[in-house]
Nucleic acid binder design. Structure first.
Lengths: 141, 141
DNA sequence: ATAATAAAATTAATAATTATCATAAAAATT
DNA sequence: AATTTTTATGATAATTATTAATTTTATTAT
């Protein structure tokens, strides 16, 4: 939920004694409303379209805050491009990617999730998060 | 196995009509002998130490060949740094990472691997590869 | 051994990211 | 509400990362 994420961001700001500013608000709003997987560049484009006066440094800085607060997460589709994903958008999910056409399906499997927790526990870890990307060839390719 | 990987690289070169050169050989050897997860920078440092005359562009190019030939794979530990991993070093494996101390354990679970193939098939995909990273807090932290 | 071809190094160009700093805005205090 | 304190911002510069272009050098095939 977008509202939930926004609240989390505000809480993070006050916890860290950071200020609520117009720029931060706008960037977060845009990020939360946008497509799943954004590069820095794509985000900056949209932000600039809404408010020409916002500097690129601010976008970098805000993106950092978003990751620190757990609202954004970096994902790797194996193409050496860093993308940011909204972790609140559709809850947690993993990725199934076609290496021919680039098709990207979001998946979620409770059995795997359970196994992941078990493995972590076996090594004495408390699992906090994970990423998983499956690469294959889809039936259309 | 290092030898196996080296062979694969040589095969890749001849298949693509690329030449075997001293530089490529050296870079591949170093990459295969090195620690699991190298950044471009780390690799270049070691290469330069062995042979001062090798240019940085050549390292970039060879790293590209390594990924194309399937010997290297990019991995994301969630810190916006692209690392290259030797896929032959200890065969396929996933990662369990402590978000406090950075400890990095290689894991492999046949049940998960099987589930991954099943999920991919369910969506009409033929699974070729995958990455999985579990983030948590280890018992020492 | 020689010619043909491709790769390397070097340099330059471009892109991405971070640092600096003066100004402006937000929160705290009066 | 005005003032003070603190922090954020934007512009620029600096740094770092990556790619391109070109001449020289090395490799392969003949």
């Amino acid at each position: 939920m977008t509202i939930e994420a926004k609240e989390r961001f505000d809480q993070y700001l006050s916890k860290k004694n950071l200020k609520k500013t117009h720029q931060r608000g706008l960037i977060v709003d845009i990020f939360l409303k946008s497509a799943k997987h954004l590069t820095y560049e794509e985000l900056y484009e949209v932000v600039k379209a809404k408010d020409k006066t916002i500097g690129l440094t601010t976008v970098y800085r805000t993106l950092k805050l978003l990751t620190e607060s757990g609202i954004a997460k970096t994902v790797d589709f194996g193409d050496r491009v860093i993308r940011y994903e909204n972790t609140f958008c559709s809850g947690h999910h993993d990725h199934l990617i076609c290496i021919r056409c680039g098709k990207n399906i979001e998946i979620l499997d409770e059995n795997i999730e359970k196994l992941q927790r078990e493995i972590a526990n076996r090594y004495g870890f408390t699992l906090k998060d994970h990423t998983m990307s499956l690469y294959g060839i889809c039936n259309e390719c």
